[in-house]
Design a protein around this nucleic acid. Sequence first.
DNA 1: GAGTCCCGCCAATCT
DNA 2: AGATTGGCGGGACTC
Length: 232
Amino acid sequence: MNEETRSSLTSEVHLETVARKMSVEKRRIYDIVNVMEALDAMSKTNKSYYRWHGLEGLPKLMADLQKEAVEERLPERVLRVEQAMCSFTELSPGSRKSGMKEVVGTLIGDDGSLSQSSTDSLCQSVHSSEKRSRVDGRDRQGRNSLAQLCRRFLMVLLSNPKNTRRVSLDVASTVLIKDPDTEGFEPPSRSRCRRLYDIANVLVALGLIKKVHYLFGTKKIPLFVYCGPEPD
DNA sequence: GAGTCCCGCCAATCT
DNA sequence: AGATTGGCGGGACTC
């Protein structure tokens, strides 16, 4: 029995086969599988084999993550970081079709007009240097793993009350990078942001989050909005 | 000129 | 030791 037959008879997924079918490197599949594992949607069964569990468990998982977030006081921390980074102003959703939302404050119009001035220094410092201090801080299974980052990213999203479950990349990465019990708001590392994009893209594909654009100071920034199942 | 993400090196881990 | 897994960041591309 070859891999494809085996895969179709069980709910097993063979990574090489998937990679071949999708014409992508196996390396790319690992990123996706990691996120799926974080969602308990898949688990490893054998070398290069994973079992698909489906997304039915998501409401329970989201509830668990939400609980975990509260336990480690993530909502307070998210709030503090958000406040530090000033308030967001909604921007026309992708300048797509009709309904331009009503806008409070500065909007980057389609005409390209900007304004806005002195946001405090915290806001401006958001991007700058990369930390070069680490002597290879690879951390499998730990806080740096894609799966762990994915779960924590969802925890951050779920820290907000229903209908306001959204977070900017900056806030998410600031919250997720920092040691939870230290204060201060460091610029997110570019590398960590890249990982958040990796995760976000899979979550978008699964319909668990969507990306919208908001105005922050004079900058148009992406915001990730939770649109997955309501936690149990 | 910041946001996005493709690409693949290579270390950690597994067999 | 060779294969598998996946952290990580360079750099190209986009807007």
